[in-house]
C-alpha cells in the first residue's frame, strides 16, 4: 500500500531530512512512526501526499509511483489519503461545517449527502453541535478533532496522522486513537506519527523509528 525504497529528502537549504528510508506498509495495516522532534516524521508524510518530492528513491502508494505521477493526478491521490496535520491546517474564516465538508465539496457531492456525512463525522469525534463554530472559538484539542473529522469524511483508504494527540489528554487521546483503530478494523491503512509511547504500547502495532532522518528500527510489536 505504502512502499518506500531508499527514499532521501534533502530540502533546498541543504538539510537532509530523510536519508535512504525504506519500508513497506501493507494494505490494512496500522503503524506508528516514532522519532524525536526533527527526525523527519512530517517530511515523510509530505512525501507520501506529494507535497514534496523525494530527492532520491521511490515511493509507491496504491501501486502508483509518485515520482512518475503527473501533477494533474495528484488531487486524486490526495482524495485517497486522509491527513491529519500537525498544525491542523483549518480555514479559520470558515465554520467547522465548511472545514469538514471541504473534501466532499471538491468532489462535487450533493449537499444533503454532505450534511449527513459531516454530522456523522463530527459525532464520531465528539463535536456534535459545533457545526456553526469558527475554529478559533475552539480549544486546541477541539481543532485537532475538526481536522480528524475532515480527514476521515471522504472514507479514504489511507489515513496519515501527524501528532494527532499532541494537544489531548489521555482519555481523549485514547478515544481518538481508537477512532483510527476502528477505521483500521474496516480495512483502512493507518500511519500515525507520535511521541506518545503510551498509545504504541496500548495497541501494540508496528512501529517505524526514525532518528535524524534514518530508520533505526522497524518492528512488529506483537
Amino acid at each position: 500500500m505504502i512502499k518506500l525504497s531508499q527514499v532521501s529528502k534533502q530540502y533546498p537549504n541543504g538539510h537532509l531530512a530523510l536519508n535512504k528510508v525504506s519500508f513497506d506498509i501493507p494494505s490494512g495495516e496500522m503503524a506508528f512512526v516514532l522519532g524525536h522532534s526533527g527526525a523527519g516524521k512530517s517530511t515523510l508524510f509530505k512525501l507520501i501526499t506529494r507535497m514534496e518530492k523525494p530527492t532520491a528513491g521511490q515511493i509507491i502508494v496504491h501501486d502508483q509511483n509518485l515520482s512518475r505521477m503527473r501533477s494533474s493526478k495528484v488531487p486524486y491521490l490526495r482524495r485517497e489519503i486522509g491527513v491529519i496535520f500537525q498544525d491542523h491546517k483549518l480555514l479559520l474564516d470558515r465554520t467547522v461545517f465548511d472545514n469538514v465538508a471541504l473534501p466532499l465539496i471538491v468532489i462535487g457531492m450533493p449537499n444533503d449527502e454532505i450534511r449527513k456525512r459531516v454530522r456523522a463525522a463530527l459525532g464520531k469525534v465528539g463535536l456534535s453541535g459545533y457545526e456553526k463554530n469558527l475554529p478559533l472559538t475552539l480549544s486546541g484539542g477541539e481543532q485537532q478533532r475538526v481536522g480528524i473529522a475532515r480527514a476521515v469524511i471522504n472514507r479514504p483508504s489511507i489515513l496519515l496522522a501527524d501528532e494527532p494527540t499532541g494537544n489531548l489528554d489521555d482519555e481523549l487521546s485514547d478515544e481518538i486513537i481508537d477512532i483510527f483503530a476502528d477505521f483500521n478494523q474496516v480495512g483502512v491503512t493507518v500511519l500515525i506519527a507520535t511521541h506518545d509511547l503510551r498509545q504504541v504500547n496500548r495497541l501494540g502495532s508496528r512501529t517505524i523509528r526514525l532518528e535524524k532522518g534514518e530508520i533505526v528500527q522497524t518492528e512488529a510489536t506483537e
Binding site: T49, M51, S72, P75, Y76, R78, R79, V83, F85, K89, L90, L91, L102, P103, V106, I107, R150, N154
Partner: peptide
C-alpha cells in the same frame, strides 16, 4: 493550499 491538500483539482 488547503483545498489542494484535500484533493481539489486545479
Amino acid at each position: 493550499e488547503i483545498t489542494k491538500l484535500v484533493g481539489g483539482t486545479d
